[in-house]
């Protein structure tokens, strides 16, 4: 093996921090976006066709760019924000841009699943639109939202590995530099194994959390 365990550990930390920060920022962008995609559609709380159509198109545009291309395409923007286009921090920018619109879609889906009857009851009892979102829509969708965020997190783990290709660091970087380019099969197997365990753990945690909230 061409790397020692310390290197693997550092790579793991990088991956985790890339995923965690991206997830946090992407959720900050994706949650309001997802809510807007629901409440501005026809017949909903703040029906607004222009806003809905624009948001819908923007999300689709971002969702249609493959991550590897998005990563390269936004380099000037990345440089503007973090000052460099290489490294873990730099990788977070395209990861957020990639996963924010994705999370918006997942949240949109979860919110659309909420029984319209509950909204009707909320309106009948005189709730404000804000209260309907905060006290009715989000809590009723929470269990499904968590499953959606789990999917997004796993997607980010994949993206973080790709970010390795432009020097983002992390497990992906390790696998490509040593496992692939220097034919170190052991490193390859170890990084893949770690990624597998990570994804399994994330999915299991997501399932448990979601089930706990559903209490059913």
């Amino acid at each position: 093996m061409l790397v020692d365990w310390d290197q693997i550990l550092i790579a793991l930390q990088e991956t985790i921090s890339m995923v965690a920060f991206s997830l946090a920022f992407a959720t900050i962008i994706g949650l309001p976006l997802g809510i807007l995609l629901v409440v501005t559609r026809k017949g909903h709380l703040w029906e607004n066709a222009p806003v809905f159509n624009v948001l819908n198109a923007v999300v689709n545009v971002f969702r249609s760019i493959p991550f590897i291309i998005l990563m390269v395409a936004v380099i000037p923007f990345t440089r503007l924000i973090v000052g460099t286009s290489i490294g873990t921090a730099a990788a977070i920018v395209p990861m957020v841009l990639f996963s924010g619109p994705y999370i918006a879609r997942l949240i949109e889906n979860s919110l659309l699943e909420v029984d319209p009857g509950v909204m009707e009851a909320a309106q009948a009892m005189g709730a404000t639109p804000r209260q309907i979102i905060v006290r009715f829509l989000l809590p009723e969708a929470l269990s499904s939202l968590i499953l959606g965020l789990t999917i997004a997190t796993i997607g980010l783990v994949g993206a973080s590995a790709m970010a390795g290709a432009i020097g983002g660091g992390g497990l992906g970087d390790l696998a490509i530099t040593y496992g692939y380019q220097r034919f170190d099969t052991v490193v390859m197997i170890i990084t893949v194994a770690i990624l597998v365990v990570m994804v399994q753990g994330l999915q299991t945690t997501g399932n448990i959390l979601s089930k706990k909230i559903r209490r059913r």
Partner: peptide, 21 residues
Amino acid sequence: LREAKRNIGMIFQHFNLLNSK
């Protein structure tokens, strides 16, 4: 109108309760 609605209770065929609460 929201104020007025508080004076008008409503029940539904499918109850429309919050399952998460």
